[in-house]
């Protein structure tokens, strides 16, 4: 997300305030895939994900005039999506824990693919041990690429809470270092073989 993208998003929001549905559609089409990517890391029920995204843009349509410009538009929209996802998760009692771990190895997979699958399974199991807020903090930092302050804005909490959640998540995942390191080293060695 570049400053230019944000200017474009702000222009769309201004048009949405003036009840321009075409602008809402453009914003929807730009953000729906990335919201789906982020939220699918937290919830595995597709219906609940679609509902949370729909609710997010319903809120954008009704509350666009409340955007004060203190953050990027993407941060504001992700904050709305996070709140709707929390509601959906509470309603459905579902957290995506085994989505990646379900990937089974088939005979036609290469050794590299198997290493990747093993790494994915490790990651899914490791992430499943984390509470939802710690997990979302990691996803927002490493998958979406937000700063500490932006994550605080999205999750509606003090910046120190984000730091504490990140600290706890790192501590728990640290135990899995040897496995991740082993897989990475194996991949690197294979890359150097003639």
């Amino acid at each position: 997300m570049t400053p230019r993208d944000d200017l474009h998003d702000r222009d769309l929001l201004r048009r949405i305030v003036a009840r321009d549905r075409h602008a809402l559609e453009r914003l929807y089409r730009a953000y729906q895939p990335r919201l789906l990517q982020f939220l699918s890391r937290l919830c595995s029920q597709r219906d609940a994900l679609d509902e949370a995204i729909n609710d997010t843009f319903w809120t954008v349509w009704r509350k666009a005039e409340e955007f004060r410009g203190a953050s990027r538009v993407s941060t504001w929209i992700l904050g709305i999506a996070w709140r709707h996802a929390l509601k959906a998760l509470r309603r459905n009692g579902d957290i995506a824990v085994e989505r990646l771990a379900d990937t089974g190895a088939s005979e036609c997979q290469t050794a590299d693919t198997l290493l990747n699958d093993e790494r994915d399974q490790w990651l899914a199991q490791g992430m499943a041990t984390l509470p939802l807020e710690q997990r979302a903090t990691l996803e927002l930092a490493y998958f979406v690429g937000h700063s500490c302050q932006e994550i605080a804005d999205i999750m509606g909490c003090p910046i120190n809470t984000v730091k504490a959640r990140m600290f706890q998540a790192r501590l728990k995942l640290r135990n899995l270092l040897p496995k991740l390191e082993g897989i990475e080293n194996a991949t690197a060695l294979r890359g150097h073989q003639p």
């Binding site: 549905r21 809402l24 559609e25 929807y28 089409r29 729906q32 895939p33 789906l36 990517q37 699918s40 597709r46 994900l49 679609d50 995204i53 729909n54 843009f57 319903w58 989505r99 990646l100 990747n116 790494r119 994915d120 990651l123 990691l138 996803e139 490493y142 998958f143 995942l173 991740l180 390191e181 990475e184």
Partner: peptide, 24 residues
């Protein structure tokens, strides 16, 4: 390393057209 592992995209297929029709 953790960030590289998490960055792998494994999202479900996004059907923005159907989603937009429901919102409309």
């Amino acid at each position: 390393r953790l960030q590289r592992a998490m960055a792998r995209d494994s999202a479900p297929e996004a059907d923005a057209t159907a989603g937009w029709a429901r919102l409309r």
